[in-house]
């Protein structure tokens, strides 16, 4: 199951839907974002044929960076076959005529919501994240002028107030997704709603990470091999989620698991959230004698 046959591009749309001037504008903003890791760059967000909250920010970035020979993979909660993933993949197959794939190593551009693939990324790959709220300080400081000043001055003491509250209330840091990180020892960044399980994969990743927020019209980036450190306390260090179970399909003990209710009696199963990773492992196990 390699790259699928390249579909015919629909006439009547510019390549990858957006007009060339818009793509140029987004690329300029992306260059700035890559130059200042973690810094939120405003861009002129366009209307996309999809409601806000469905990945319009990520789609605009994907449209701006997509070339005719790119291979696109789209995942939603780790799965390639969910509504959001299927519709965005089909959208770019039809408007750009690019090849699409479900295999992580075969893809050059991976647009994602909520997960980073379990298969390690390689140099040359680009991850595009769909971001709902790009501002990590918003929960504690609603004023946008104030948060920009705080970013400019590196005034990030309040970020730990939320973690403190977690420990005071739950006894441990209960924030499990959108876990704030410091990028390159400078900017505090919201890594989009990926589980904190995926935070270590951001650190010194060989792939380029691009984040786009459509409603907020902001984008930011983590260039390859950049230090990304999750915030924590000395006596409550950062920890990722752990499960007592293994995946019910492929038996993986070190991937992010989804809990499924499988019958009316409430029996549960844990399976990999990354469907491609799970399928590859299951296939390997079958082919082995």
């Amino acid at each position: 199951m390699n790259a699928q046959a390249i579909p015919a591009r629909e006439a009547g749309y510019n390549f990858a839907y957006l007009d060339e001037q818009t793509k140029r504008m987004i690329r300029r903003a992306l260059l700035k974002a890559v130059a200042i890791p973690g810094y939120q760059v405003p861009f002129g967000g366009r209307e996309m044929p999809l409601p806000y909250g469905w990945g319009t920010g990520g789609m605009q970035l994907t449209a701006a960076i997509l070339g005719a020979d790119d291979v696109l993979k789209v995942i939603d909660q780790g799965a390639d076959d969910t509504t959001n993933a299927v519709s965005i993949r089909r959208f770019f197959a039809r408007t750009a005529g690019v090849a699409t794939t479900e295999r992580t190593p075969a893809a050059t551009v991976i647009q994602t919501r909520h997960r980073i693939p379990e298969t390690p990324l390689a140099a040359g790959q680009i991850m595009v994240y769909q971001v709902p709220i790009p501002e990590p300080l918003r929960f504690i400081e609603p004023s946008e002028t104030e948060t920009r000043t705080m970013h400019a001055l590196g005034d990030y003491g309040v970020m730990h107030v939320k973690l403190y509250e977690d420990i005071a209330t739950f006894g441990h840091i209960a924030t499990s997704y959108a876990y704030p990180v410091t990028v390159d020892w400078r900017y505090v960044m919201d890594p989009s709603p990926i589980p904190k399980f995926d935070n270590p994969k951001l650190d010194r990743s060989p792939a380029l990470m691009l984040f786009g927020a459509g409603r907020e019209k902001r984008l930011y980036a983590v260039p390859p091999y950049t230090r990304v450190v999750s915030l924590d306390f000395e006596d409550h260090p950062f920890q990722i989620q752990q499960w007592e179970q293994c995946c019910a399909i492929c038996g993986s003990g070190d991937s992010y698991l989804d809990e499924l209710i499988v019958d009316d009696a409430g029996s549960k199963q844990f399976v990999c959230s990354d469907t491609d990773y799970c399928a590859q492992r299951a296939q390997q196990q079958e082919s082995r004698p």
Binding site: G157, H160, V161, Y164, E234, D235, H236
Partner: peptide, 23 residues
């Protein structure tokens, strides 16, 4: 900060000064 506990209110200045020890 009305949205966070009394302890977090008191600790905020210390956290801003770089104290990273919950205890």
């Amino acid at each position: 900060r009305m949205g966070v506990s009394a302890g977090a209110n008191i600790g905020e200045r210390l956290m801003a000064q770089g104290v990273r020890h919950y205890g």
